[in-house]
Amino acid sequence: MAKKRILVVDDEVGFTNLLRLNLEKDGRYEVRIENQGAKAVDAAREFQPDLVLLDIIMPEKDSGEVLADLQREPSLKDLRVLFLTATVSIKGVAQRDGTIRGMPFVAKPVEPKKLIRRIEEELNS
C-alpha cells in the first residue's frame, strides 16, 4: 500500500520537523514540509499530497487565502485539508463542530497519536 502524502504548511520550523519525524516514524506517511504559506500552493502542486495540515495563522499569508488557492488548483481536486491551529481564539472556534470554513481542525498542542487518528479519519472519510 502506497504511503499517503501529507503536506505540512506551518511557519513553525521546529514543530514541522518534529511532526515529520513522528509521522514518518509511523511508517504510513510521506511527509513534505513547507514553512512559507506563500509557497504552499506550489509545493502542493508539485507534491500532490493526499492531505494538507495547514496552520491557520502564518505571517506572510492568511490560511484562508492559502486554502482558497489550494481549492482553486485543478490538479488538487480531491485534496483534503486538516487545519492546525494554535489560536483557538478565532471567534466561535471552540464551539464549532470541529470545523473551520467547513474544514476540520486540530488544536495545537496535540499529541502525535491523536493527530494521526484525526489524519486517518480524514483520509478515510
Binding site: 513553525e12 519525524l21 494554535a86 481564539s89 498542542p109 499529541e111 502525535p112
Partner: peptide, 17 residues
C-alpha cells in the same frame, strides 16, 4: 495563546518522538 501554543506543540511533538 498563539505564541505559547506553538512552542508547546513543538515540545509535545519532540517529547513524543
Amino acid at each position: 495563546a498563539h505564541e505559547v501554543k506553538n512552542p508547546l506543540a513543538t515540545l509535545l511533538m519532540g517529547l513524543d518522538y
